[in-house]
Amino acid sequence: MNETIKTILHRRTIRRFDTKQIEEAVLQQILQAGLCAPSAGGRQGVIFAVCQNKEINERLGKIKRANSNP
């Protein structure tokens, strides 16, 4: 089996985040790259919500989980 396919089929998502925040210049570069990413022929609007406040991110995560479909 192709190594790329094998990796895709056996990968697992792990969400461990560093407590260090991203520098503003790096964050801007990431957002700019996201704006340039393909979006179904440019027909899909782009919305970014960026927050580097840990407490707010935790609250947003709880809200999202509470409103997600099972």
Rank of each mutant, 00 (worst) to 15 (best):
G45S: 07
A33R: 15
R11K: 14
L27S: 08
I56W: 10
M1N: 13
S68Y: 01
I47M: 05
K64R: 07
D18Y: 04
H10E: 13
G45K: 07
S68H: 04
G45W: 00
L35N: 12
A33N: 13
C51N: 13
L60T: 10
T13D: 01
E58C: 02
A37V: 02
S68Q: 14
Q29K: 15
A66Y: 01
A37W: 04
V50A: 13
T19S: 12
R11E: 11
A33W: 11
Q21W: 00
V50M: 02
F48N: 07
A25L: 07
R65P: 03
T7F: 08
N69T: 11
A49D: 03
N57F: 08
A66L: 04
R65E: 12
L9A: 09
G61F: 09
K20I: 08
A25F: 07
L9M: 09
K20W: 04
I14M: 06
L35W: 14
Q44Y: 04
R16Q: 01
A66D: 11
A33G: 11
S39W: 02
L31G: 05
C36G: 02
T4C: 10
E23D: 15
R59C: 01
E23C: 03
V26S: 12
E55H: 05
K6F: 05
N2Y: 06
G61K: 10
I22Q: 08
